[in-house]
C-alpha cells in the first residue's frame, strides 16, 4: 500500500502558536519542547466517520421545543473545502455559543446575564455533497472573562470539524464583522497573520439574508490539504 501523502505544513503565521503571552491561559499549558515531526501513517491519515443516522443533525439553535430564543435571528452558511480547493462532503460540524445576552447554558458560566429557557446553544450539521453547510441561530452576545482588566470576548460561535483524517481535525471560532472587541481580544489576535485572522470573521451577505426573518452570514472554512507546498512558502 502506498504511504499516505504528507499534509501541507501551515503557512507561516496562519496558525496560532501555543504560547500567546497576552492570553494568560496559555502560560502554563504550552509545551516547552518542540513537537516531533511525524509523517502521516494510517493512524493520522484516517479518521472517524459520523453519519446523521447515528449522530442526528440539529441545524436550528434558534428554537427550543418550538419556542423562539431571544435575540437577533441569524443564518450562518458556508462551504468547507480543503487547501487544494476541493469540497469536503458529508463531514460533521459541531457548534456552540453563548445566548444573545452573552451567557452560556453551562453551569460554569456565572456571568450575571440572563439565561434563556429557549436557547441551549449547541448544534450539529453535516456538509452536503458540495461541502455546503447551513444553520440557524441567534447573534451571540459578548461576555466578560478574567484574562485582564475589562476583558470581553467578541461575539463568536465555536466550530468543531473533523474532515477526512484525524490530522484535519479543526476547532475554531467564527467572529462577526465590525465587532470593536476584536481589536482587544488575545485569542483572535493570537493568530499572527492579519489575513488569517480576517478569515475568521464571517461576511454579512444579503443573499443569505431572508426577508422578514433572519440576517445571513457566510463563513467558509478550509481544512488542511495534502497538495505540494506552494512555491515561496
Amino acid at each position: 500500500m502506498a504511504d499516505p501523502a504528507p499534509f501541507r505544513p501551515a503557512a507561516p503565521g496562519t496558525q496560532p502558536p501555543y504560547d500567546v503571552p497576552a492570553y494568560l491561559g496559555t502560560r502554563k499549558r504550552h509545551p516547552l519542547q518542540q513537537p516531533v515531526r511525524l509523517d502521516p501513517t494510517l493512524t493520522e491519515a484516517n479518521g472517524p466517520r459520523f453519519t446523521p443516522a447515528l449522530f442526528p443533525a440539529d441545524a436550528d439553535l434558534s428554537r427550543v421545543d418550538g419556542h423562539s430564543a431571544q435575540g437577533q435571528r441569524i443564518i450562518v452558511a458556508g462551504t468547507v473545502t480543503d487547501e487544494d480547493g476541493r469540497p469536503v462532503p458529508h463531514t460533521m460540524l459541531e457548534l456552540w455559543q453563548a445566548n444573545a445576552a452573552g451567557r452560556y447554558h453551562h453551569p460554569a458560566d456565572q456571568h450575571d446575564a440572563p439565561l434563556d429557557a429557549h436557547f441551549k446553544g449547541s448544534g450539529r450539521v453535516f456538509t452536503d455533497a458540495a461541502g455546503r453547510y447551513r444553520f440557524l441561530s441567534v447573534l451571540p452576545g459578548a461576555y466578560p472573562w478574567p484574562n485582564h482588566k475589562n476583558a470581553w470576548r467578541p461575539n463568536h460561535i465555536h466550530f468543531s470539524l473533523f474532515g477526512p483524517a484525524f490530522a484535519t481535525r479543526l476547532i475554531t471560532q467564527m467572529y462577526f464583522p465590525g465587532d470593536p472587541l476584536l481589536a482587544y481580544d488575545p485569542i483572535y489576535n493570537g493568530v499572527p497573520d492579519a489575513a488569517a485572522r480576517a478569515r475568521l470573521v464571517a461576511a454579512f451577505e444579503l443573499d443569505l439574508t431572508e426577508p422578514d426573518y433572519a440576517l445571513g452570514y457566510r463563513f467558509d472554512i478550509v481544512l488542511r490539504g495534502r497538495g505540494a507546498t506552494p512555491m515561496g512558502i
Binding site: 501541507r8 501551515a10 503557512a11 496562519t14 496558525q15 496560532p16 492570553y23 491561559g25 473545502t81 480543503d82 487547501e83 487544494d84 480547493g85 459541531e94 457548534l95 456552540w96 453563548a98 452560556y104 447554558h105 453551562h106 460554569a108 458560566d109 441551549k120 446553544g121 449547541s122 450539529r124 465555536h158 468543531s160 479543526l170 476547532i171 475554531t172 471560532q173 485569542i187 483572535y188 493570537g190 493568530v191 497573520d193 488569517a196 485572522r197 478569515r199 475568521l200 472554512i221 478550509v222 481544512l223 488542511r224 490539504g225 497538495g227 506552494p230
Partner: peptide, 18 residues
C-alpha cells in the same frame, strides 16, 4: 491556493457539545 482556517481554543464551555 486556499490556506487552512486558523485554530482557536476550544474554551471552557465545550461541554455544550459533549
Amino acid at each position: 491556493m486556499p490556506i487552512a482556517t486558523a485554530s482557536q481554543t476550544i474554551g471552557p464551555y465545550w461541554h455544550l457539545i459533549e
